[in-house]
Structure formats: structure tokens, C-alpha cells
Amino acid sequence: MLEIRNVKKVFNRGTVNEKIALHDLNLHLAPGDFVTVIGGNGAGKSTMLNSVAGVYPVDEGEIYIDGVEVTHLPEYKRAKFIGRVFQDPMMGTAATMQIEENLALAARRGKLRTLMSGITKAERESYKEALKILELGLEDRLTAKVGLLSGGQRQALTLLMATLQRPKLLLLDEHTAALDPKTASKVLEATQRIVEKDNLTTLMITHNMRDAIAYGNRLIMMYDGHVVVDVSGEEKKNLTVEQLLNLFSKVSGSNEANDKLLLG
């Protein structure tokens, strides 16, 4: 469903701040794969997601989604295939617009926006239904401005918006990192429900080792701009946090793993 081939991304090329964020990055996701992504700061996790989403162009390599090359497509065109939830709860929704207006915008992702009504009666009913899966009671607050919601509620709403039009690929960039533990687990549970219901191909970055093991069918670890560990199936299910930390020490050749990764 997603194919990343030999991607390279350099920031501030030719300056003292030059940073090779991604190199020799290769990743293939089968349809229905739910992949958790871990790695230290600067490993290239977010850069990978942003490159796939088209936030910035890559310097080398190609990216395919469901067989279509998207390497040179602008962000808004790739959105047709991709649902996204960001780390910052403020980033995925429009605060000054109503819940139903935000959903109506998301329902038209990848479609031509015409001079037809921005939201129909039938839609409102369907949004009420759709919001129930979040178990936050938002279905009774359709016309509330999103700015009135808490960070967790906004993040859950963003998740629903990302999946309202079934995306070929769901990108979650540490979408629970800014939330308190209780809210974070609620949003993660909602994520699980939605991904399972629609059998979505998903890439989820997390700093939480336990979550990385508990969720999804496959786990990848990034280091220095590419994938260094890739486990799936039974092997992944039986992983422990300790094993992960050891793996990290081995690939990074140091003991700094504990400082960098021990957030679980």
C-alpha cells in the first residue's frame, strides 16, 4: 500500500547546519499493515511521515501509495490518499469552525469543492453516528466550536476526520504525546477501534515502547535516517520493552538508549 524507495532528505544543505534526516530509507507496507514506529530524537521518524504526506519534497528516491507515484505531488493532492493526525492537538482541526463544519471539510477530502452547500442535513445525521465511536459525547455537540474542546477531544476528532473518507494510508505522528496518560489511552483505544473497523494501513510514531509493542502487527525502529529493525507477527507480539532497549543499544552502538528511549 505504501512503498518508500531509497529516499533521501537533507535539511539546510550546504550550510553548517546541514542535517541528513533520511538516507537509504526503504519501507514497504502491505494493505492492512498497522506499523508502529520508534526511534530516538532525530532518527527521522517525523521526517519520514512528512515526506510521505508531502509537507516538503524529498531529495532522492520515490514514494508510491497504492501503486501511484506521489513523489512530486503537492501536499493537498496527496491528501486524497492520506489521513493524518499530528502531534499538536491544535494542528488538525480549525478552532474557529464548528465540529460538524470540520467533519464536512474532512468528508470532502480528495473531492472537488463546488458551490453546493458545504454541509447537508443527511451529513449531520451521519456525523452524529460517526462521532459515537469516539465515546466522548461529541455527537451531542455538533455545532460547538472546536476551539472549545480539550486537547484530547480535538485529537480524537482529528482522528475521525482523518478516517471519515477511508484513507489508503493513515499517518499518526505521536498523536497522543501531548495528552495526559488517561486521555492518551482513550485516544489510542479509539485509534485501535477505527483502524480495525476499516482495516486501515497505518503508520504510527510513538515514544512509548509499551504502546509500540501493544498496538499494530508490525514494529519498525529507525536510527540515523533509515529503518534498522523490522519485526512483525509472533516475534513482535512476544517483544518486551527490555528487548527493544537492547536492540536499540546494539544498532546505535552505545548505551545512550536508556536516556533516549526510556519513556515507556
Binding site: 491528501a79 488538525g92 482541526t93 474557529t96 469552525m97 463544519e101 471539510l105 469543492r113 463546488t114
Partner: peptide, 22 residues
């Protein structure tokens, strides 16, 4: 309208708008 709402979204949150294909 659909177009008008997408213009409002552009001003309200350009990141969100692009992520929704606007």
C-alpha cells in the same frame, strides 16, 4: 458552500486545510 467553507478553513488553519486536501 463547499468552496467557501474551504476558504474559511484555509484562514482558520492552513495545515489542517492542506491535510484535508484543500
Amino acid at each position: 458552500t463547499e468552496l467557501g467553507a474551504s476558504i474559511r478553513a484555509t484562514g482558520a488553519n492552513a495545515n489542517m486545510a492542506r491535510a484535508q486536501g484543500i
